[in-house]
Design a protein around this nucleic acid. Structure first.
Lengths: 349, 349
DNA sequence: GGCCGAAATCTAAGCGCTTAGATTTGGGTG
DNA sequence: CACCCAAATCTAAGCGCTTAGATTTCGGCC
């Protein structure tokens, strides 16, 4: 690879100073039209590609923002197994994070911002998130993706937005989403339209603020109906074995609840599979609901009743927060129950 | 925003040279454990975040790769209209490009590479693609996203992979995919299993190499069956009005072909809508097929018969080509007909 | 303590661009 | 031609990091 042409080469060829070359690219309104044409022609003839690292260093800004996530795909063995189930693509992609990312991408696109994607595959991967932060003017991080200590450090230098409805690190901001009332309304639908009385919750209830809100909304509705609230069955998204293990005692006791309310669509889809494998009819013997509104909920059998999160709007809002166009609290962005067949309704899908 | 701490601050606090600080982060095996701990502690205390622009400039490499695409969402008016149809999300996302991007993302993730996304929204947007190229060590570009002149310039400096089965610019490489035989096999299915004889092709046949291959495979099968090949109806993905206009004469003449073979799923989904609006039953009165295998083909009514592209594998392969782990020709990656209800088969979906 | 060799650390130069303030240029006016 | 003013261009300094080769340190041996 030959040495790349620099502003010095372009300047010499165009017969101007390197400052004029720089202005021609960065502030063309400060350069006379005739000079500008000469410079651009010289640059084209030389195949000049500005070195954005140099520009970023000199200018103190890069013009890019970062999005950092954490991948549950930890090793090749696990991924090979998932690939073997490629027929179930829609259960793996797009998920909540993919849809939020899309919102981020679309907003960046609209603004001509470059977007740097990075991720950690090891818990508490401080170097990975710091590496992304060193490349961008602002950072959006998914909940739980990066250690709070790292985010706090980064937030002292550039704006940071945490996705997940809470700020775990000093100096960061977050996008609020109304999980609580979305879940409450879903449970109210189950109570009122289907007359369900025996509820079981599947999923985390306190790991993040948003999971706590979901369980809170569930509890609110049951409490208001004078029903007791049982502790949830332990389960986690993307951990199918955990969800299966959590359901085993329910199946073993041969006495089903009216409905299994799941904390996420991913868990609900696993639950549907477990029930089908056990020969249990949904919603005939037990209803099942999810939360998030991913596309796979429309492909499942039966189509899954869920709560729709405004993922694209979350992504877009995060970008706006990052650029500090929004001051103060933003949101909560609303969620909306989506009624399909898995709760017992005859849905047109 | 206070001046950020640099290697000079860390060095002073740790009592070492800036070179030792640099080695501690970039080549820790060259630093004694005791010194390393001292440096990292000083960095943490100061909230030091390395400036990757500086590193990239000094080192001549950034450790990131770029993915460049072109967006058909050209103005706010158009996007507002699309947003109003949010219920049809799966028709907008994920598309072919989203799935290929996912393959790129997954491969980058696996390798600890940062991925820079950039896009142009104006045709022939040379500054936009050059900006991304100035930030990365290698660039992947979607077919038609960037002017060939820009790609040629960039390819003189860093490796460039063009998606789309052809190299439009000197010095670039491409991922080959077997569109031709996938489409041929689909048409053979229609001929043999359904006895169709009157075929109409909807879509571009020569704009890119891959579109030419699709039409070529279609033509191969018809020619081998002794049938004439009519010119395609002019249509383009993401240009719904064009597809609708192309179909108007077919509908007006009140004499349908046996089957409408579409160049892409996106076009096929528009065709399904047009036919439904006209009260025409698919596949009862006319069969419809697509190409790509996006998720929306499973949600359509009826589910769409199509040819599955290995989008994730395309993305992954592109990264490997870019890193020059693959020399010589790679592929073609295989495509595979996916038979559903829209051709007339009773599919389990 | 001195010597030796390897490991660890340091010095010096420079990567390519930006931009404040200095200098030059160009056009208009008398 | 001289003067003035605004626009255009240039000079000089420096952004924060990397690393080749020079220098120092450390540990082992006699």
């Amino acid at each position: 690879m030959a040495r790349r042409p620099t502003v010095y080469d372009v300047a010499e060829r165009a017969g101007v100073s390197i400052a004029t070359v720089s202005f021609a690219f960065a502030q063309p309104e400060r350069v006379r039209k005739k000079t500008l044409d000469t410079v651009l022609a010289a640059a084209a003839a030389l195949g000049y590609v500005p070195n954005v690292s140099a520009r970023g260093l000199a200018k103190g800004r890069t013009g890019a923002i970062g999005l950092y996530s954490f991948s549950y795909l930890l090793d090749d063995g696990e991924r090979d197994e998932l690939r073997a189930r490629a027929a179930d693509d829609a259960r793996l992609f797009p998920l909540y994070s993919d849809l939020v990312q899309r919102g981020v991408e679309l907003e960046c696109r609209r603004r001509g911002l470059a977007l740097m994607l990075g991720s950690g595959t090891v818990p508490d991967d401080l170097p990975a998130v710091v590496d992304v932060a060193g490349r961008v003017d602002g950072l959006i991080a998914f909940a739980g993706a990066a250690p709070a200590e790292a985010l706090a450090r980064i937030a002292r230098r550039i704006p940071v937005v945490e996705l997940g409805g809470e700020t775990t690190a000093a100096g960061t901001r977050t996008v609020l989403v109304d999980h609580r009332s979305g879940m409450r309304r879903l449970v109210e639908h189950l109570l009122r339209e289907h007359g369900h009385r025996r509820f079981t919750y599947v999923g985390e209830e306190s790991v993040t603020a948003e999971f706590a809100e979901r369980f809170g909304g569930y509890s609110d509705a049951l409490t208001a109906a004078g029903l007791a609230v049982d502790p949830p069955l332990p389960s986690a998204p993307a951990k199918e074995a955990t969800t299966r293990a959590a359901l085993a005692p329910v199946l073993a006791r041969g006495h089903l609840p009216d409905v299994l309310v799941c904390a996420t669509d991913q868990e609900a889809l696993v639950v549907l599979n477990v029930l089908r494998d056990a020969g249990i009819d949904v919603p005939g013997q037990v209803a099942v609901t999810g939360f998030d509104g991913i596309i796979a909920t429309r492909l499942s059998s039966p189509p899954l009743t869920t709560v729709q999160q405004p993922m694209e709007a979350i992504g877009r809002t995060a970008v706006r927060l990052l650029l500090e166009e929004e001051t103060g609290e933003v949101g909560p962005l609303p969620t909306e129950p989506v009624i399909r067949a898995s709760c017992g309704c005859l849905s047109s899908n």
